[in-house]
């Protein structure tokens, strides 16, 4: 299993999360909240005794994403992804930024160090513009 990342080599700060996860779609908490809500409704329609089918993992995830989502409005969620995807970020970086909504450039670099790693051309100005766009979405939500 060559694609598997051993625990010792794994480091999200350097974007070492394994090829499999790098290639996969990464989702922000607010997006997960919508998916799980939809699934929850489906489960309830399917049977009256929905509580039996809902796993603890599902329930905890749902509570968590509802509590830790920055954007509630579906349109805002879409806009966040659209804005962030203009900046050539990896999926993982995009979602960390979308989840945590940093306010300053230093904060953004601290939570996603990989955006400043070598070979990347994201200047501070660009990061600042990105954060500004994000805060606008939040303001007009």
């Amino acid at each position: 299993m060559s694609t598997e990342v051993r625990d010792e080599d794994e480091n999200a700060a350097e974007l070492k999360i394994g090829e499999e996860f790098l290639k996969s779609k990464c989702l922000m908490n607010c997006e997960i909240a919508r998916i799980l809500d939809h699934k929850y409704d489906q489960l309830q329609q399917m049977s009256d005794d929905a509580t039996n089918q809902i796993s603890q993992v599902f329930e905890k995830s749902m509570q968590y994403v509802k509590r830790c989502s920055r954007y509630k409005n579906p349109d805002a969620v879409r806009q966040v992804r659209e804005v962030l995807s203009r900046y050539k970020l990896a999926e993982f970086e995009l979602c960390v930024l979308g989840n945590l909504c940093p306010e300053t450039v230093e904060e953004a670099i601290a939570i996603v160090p990989s955006i400043k790693s070598k070979g990347r051309k994201l200047e501070d100005d660009a990061i600042e513009k990105m954060l500004h766009d994000l805060s606008l979405i939040k303001k007009f939500e």
């Binding site: 480091n11 700060a13 350097e14 997960i32 998916i35």
Partner: peptide, 15 residues
């Protein structure tokens, strides 16, 4: 499937 996978070095919010 939707999966939740924590990574070393990841920064996230928790309760």
């Amino acid at each position: 499937a939707v999966v939740f996978r924590p990574f070393k070095g990841e920064i996230l919010e928790a309760v």
